[in-house]
Amino acid sequence: MSAVRLQLEDVRKSFGQTEVLDGVSLHVQEGEFVSILGPSGAGKSTIFRLLTGAERADGGAIHMNGAPLEGRNRNMAFMPQRDALMPWRSILDNVTLGLEVQGMTRKAARAKVTPLLAEFGLAGFENHYPAQLSGGMRQRAALLRTVVQERNMLLLDEPFGALDALTRTSMQRWLEVMWKRHRWTALLITHDVREAVFLSDRIYVLSARPARVLHEFHVPLPRPRDGSARGLQEASAIEAAVLDTLLIREQAGGPHS
């Protein structure tokens, strides 16, 4: 088994009186695709804010490659819940943003990104503004901006949440292919059960706020998960189990009723 890249142990966070994370423990291994699934407002994005350093945890420990996570440079590439493309920058300049912040010259950054545009379905649109692109293309641009940073880990916060069902499905398939090719280590937030099962090696299901890990699911389906009959059957069994966990807890009024 490969090494543990990210580890959260009993992480706690409150905003004033509002307790948001109530001892969250999870880990991600090198080259693994892990999803966090939970109801809206549970505290999923808050976990990412702790990881990127936008907020500090009140308690617990976060380790990256065995060392405590701290300081400005976290070595993680973050994709926010909304695509956060800058409307005033062309697609090319949006995609190179992370590299420029890292100190690369604009020219070198462009040279690095340009060969990847075709793979991300953005060739010919590099000089367009975000407002000229479809939702799916915007998400692909945001994802390209995330992966070119070549960080230890990808943090994806509901990357396809704003898309229509058809575009979303095709983006999920596309991401699965890309992930297989590049073997990114990825942590994905979603509240789409099917998406989580389709993309992940493992899934953590969170309770409603204050969030705790209710259950951890393994998804031992073969890849590529192109929707073959056998795979579909197993996938729906896991989906049903995940949904059960989410819904039963909801009916019981959550773990802290």
């Binding site: 990127t52 973050f78 926010p80 956060a84 890292q102």
Partner: peptide, 14 residues
């Protein structure tokens, strides 16, 4: 300024 953009830049180390 969009909060997501600020958080994004922060995550990049800006």
């Amino acid at each position: 300024t969009e909060k997501e953009i600020v958080q994004l830049l922060h995550s990049m180390g800006a």
